[in-house]
Amino acid sequence: MSGEVETTRKPVPAADELTRPFWDAARAGRLVIQRCSACGYYNHPPRNFCDACLARELAFTPVSGRGAVFSFTVMHQRDVAGFENDAPFINIVVEIAEQPMLMMVANLPIGERERVRIGAPVEVCFEDRGDGVAIPQFRII
């Protein structure tokens, strides 16, 4: 598409009491995921009860940051707040290496259109969003 349109700011995550450790770690360039102290299951996004055993003892734990593209979309519309001038862009859902179906959303520049495929190996990187906020991203390796 051609022609810039007025763009809104990309949404900034509002950390809450449950998610703050995740965003604090991201700012420091580390990827952490809640892990159940009772059964070892990883849970993401952060929650109050373990998905596998419903225990409440969940501790943010560093993970490898490696994974694979589980699925992807290519957005062609300027319909998303903060991404009006980014279209077309690629979204991926990454299956994190530590556990099957442990998923995290990210996006890739459209230049990766030829390389993105289901199963492509990825690793985490971090994107600075200003005001002391960084979000995890993934790049194809």
């Binding site: 900034v12 300027r78 707040a81 903060g82 969003r129």
Partner: peptide
Amino acid sequence: GPIPVAVAEGDGQFNMGWGWT
């Protein structure tokens, strides 16, 4: 056009920042 979203709260923290909405 899109309704501007300044901050992504709740579940939105884990998708809106990547433009997946």
